[in-house]
Computed example of a mutant assay.
Amino acid sequence: MTRPLIAAVVLALSSLTANARDTGQACAHVLSTGQPSIKQSADRTQLLCYRAYAVLYSSQTRTALWSAERLTREAVDAARKLPRDSDFYEEDRLPEADRARLADYRRGSGFDRGHLAPSGDFPDKAAQAESFSLANVIPQHSVSNRRTWSHIETSTRRLARE
């Protein structure tokens, strides 16, 4: 199963200091109006805003439906200097019954926890740590995650640097 490429927004990244919030203009640093321009069709969805990205989370599938971020050369250059050392975590802003669990991704299943908004795009430790929320993850076949999707992420960062 491959991770869907749904509405990943690659635009210019502004200086981000806002804390994570759930709705309204809190996502304006990623979404021009603070809200998605497409209708949130699923009944059980929640827009989650983070320092450097936003996701539309589905309680029905317990995965993100899409992610959006603004990416610049400066962000990519800063991210390249940071080691990836964060741990995946369950998103406590979601109701317990609706959130993905660490146990959903047990070893040996053949599936990785695939980031929609990759930690390697984010210029500081706090933003990178937020990318490890399970609300930003979908199950992805390990070969796809570690090869195909990794190449897509790397190519996107190269384009941002150019």
Rank of each mutant, 00 (worst) to 15 (best):
A78M: 11
A78H: 08
A78K: 15
A78F: 07
R80I: 02
R80D: 15
R80M: 08
K81F: 10
P83V: 14
P83F: 08
R84P: 00
R84I: 14
S86A: 15
D87Q: 13
F88C: 08
F88V: 03
F88K: 12
F88D: 02
Y89I: 04
Y89F: 15
E90V: 08
E90T: 06
E91K: 13
D92H: 14
R93Q: 12
R93H: 12
R93F: 04
P95N: 04
E96M: 01
E96N: 08
E96R: 11
A97P: 00
A97M: 01
D98G: 10
R99I: 00
R99S: 01
L102V: 05
L102S: 03
A103T: 13
A103H: 01
A103S: 15
D104G: 04
D104R: 11
D104P: 04
Y105N: 02
R106G: 09
R107P: 01
G108P: 01
G108Y: 10
S109C: 03
G110K: 11
G110S: 09
G110Q: 06
D112N: 13
R113A: 09
G114E: 11
G114W: 05
H115T: 09
H115L: 06
H115W: 10
H115I: 11
L116V: 11
L116I: 10
A117V: 06
S119C: 13
D121E: 07
P123I: 09
D124I: 09
D124M: 14
K125F: 08
A126V: 12
A129G: 02
S133P: 03
S133C: 03
L134N: 05
L134A: 06
L134Q: 07
A135C: 02
N136P: 03
V137G: 01
I138G: 03
I138K: 09
P139S: 13
P139Y: 05
P139V: 05
P139T: 09
H141P: 00
H141C: 08
S142K: 14
N145V: 05
R147M: 11
W149D: 03
H151C: 07
I152H: 11
E153A: 01
E153H: 01
E153D: 08
E153F: 03
T154C: 00
